[in-house]
Amino acid sequence: MTFTIDCRDKPTRAINQELRGAIDTGQRDIHVQQPDGRHNLGVALLQPVRVVFDGSVGYYCAGMMDGAHVEVHGSAGWGTAESMLNGTVVIDGNAGSGAAASIRGGTVVVRGDAAARAGVSMKGGTLLIGGSCGYMAGFMMQKGRIVVCGDAGEALADSMYEGAVFVGGKVDSLGNDSVYVDLTAEDHASLKELLGTYRVPAPKAFRKIVSGRKLWNFDRKELETWKAAL
């Protein structure tokens, strides 16, 4: 059974309290209507519930959550799903800067474009972007994967430690110490599964970017590399 929350004429705190109250009373499928770009909606959801935002949301939607399934039938502002532990966030429109920053697990899907600094400092999980992304996506990522079906902006995957970035379109430029490698058979299979699961159209081919690992250890001989990275 679906539980409905109408955001009209309510402050954000009241909406989030209503959301928590509904979850506490056992509601597992909650529709939030007329979010109209409000910030901080659905932050820290810790139960396996489905929450659907019936319109665009503002900043930090579904941040710091663990295990919920969140859908946004519109666009999302900055810092969507930031620091998420687990769960899924699916945004039908575009996402603002810093989407899926610092997530540790789970999956974030942006069907449209993601702005700058998507997936920075990821420590696990998956960020899937159906369109293109802005500059410095995957900056200092430590684990997990970013999949961009369209184009990627400048300084892609700058100073990444670990993890992988896959891009279907053109890359404006790679960041410091990130390199192209060939896709493995497992990569092809897992990408196919991921795109199939979320019904995101696949590009003709993907290129894979990983850490060149030159910045892992300090080497006096490579002082120039370090200077450029810092």
Binding site: Q34, D36, G37, R38, H39, G55, S56, G58, G77
Partner: peptide, 11 residues
């Protein structure tokens, strides 16, 4: 912010 567009002009 988008909130200003939604509040004034709808959806």
């Amino acid at each position: 912010e988008e909130i200003a567009l939604r509040r004034s002009l709808g959806r």
